[in-house]
Simulated assay, not measured.
Amino acid sequence: MEDVNNHIESKRTVFVTVGTTSFDSLVRTVDSDQVKEALLEKGYTHLVIQMGRGSYIPKKSSGEDGSLVVDYFTFSSSIADYLRSASLVISHAGSGSIFETLRIAKPLIVVVNEDLMDNHQSELAEELAERKHLFCARPQTLCQVIESLNLDTIVPYEPGDANPVAKLINKHLGFPAD
């Protein structure tokens, strides 16, 4: 790969993950010309989509015409390498994907799947966005979130103190606050 791209330091990859779920509306949105153009304008060069069980197949692109290089796959035994090499992560709202990305301090846009019933994941994503650890979007607002993206506003997530998350979970489950 380095032979193909002599300017490897200029490679800026956006990694999209839906985990083990099906989240076609997210995959379809990141595959749209509008979102790909917004990513290009922000200086990103590559888009790698982990599409899970989804049925929507994104369009691959070699990027020869100045567009994003686009690739996709369904599953991987570990997405850790993809996360580490990413300049930006766009993820479903699964807590595992969120915290794995925050732990390695990668900029993160969490896209909430509004098709899920009793969507507790959106509460976690919105709480972490309020604390400025990540950005939160819906499929229909993702392009606007990318266009207004300011990575300088991110507050690094400090793992270790689980109390705020535990309180949020307890509140959601109806347990009294401490």
Rank of each mutant, 00 (worst) to 15 (best):
R103S: 15
M117N: 05
S87I: 13
G96W: 01
S85C: 10
E130I: 00
S97G: 15
D118K: 09
L88W: 11
K132Y: 01
F135I: 00
H133T: 08
S85L: 11
G96V: 10
L124A: 09
G96E: 07
S85V: 11
Q140I: 11
R103L: 14
N119H: 10
A93P: 13
R84G: 01
S122M: 06
R131K: 13
A105E: 14
Q121N: 10
L134D: 04
R103G: 01
V112Y: 03
I109E: 10
D115T: 11
A129F: 08
I98P: 02
E126G: 00
H133G: 03
I90S: 02
E126P: 00
S91P: 03
V112S: 06
A125Q: 08
G94V: 12
G96P: 04
Y82F: 15
I109S: 12
R138M: 06
K106I: 00
A137M: 05
L102A: 07
Q121K: 04
A129L: 03
P107H: 01
N113L: 07
C143F: 02
E114G: 05
H133D: 03
I104M: 08
A105G: 08
H133N: 10
V145F: 08
S78G: 14
A105V: 10
L116Y: 01
Y82C: 14
L124H: 08
I79H: 13
F99P: 06
V145R: 04
G94K: 11
S122K: 15
V89L: 04
V145L: 03
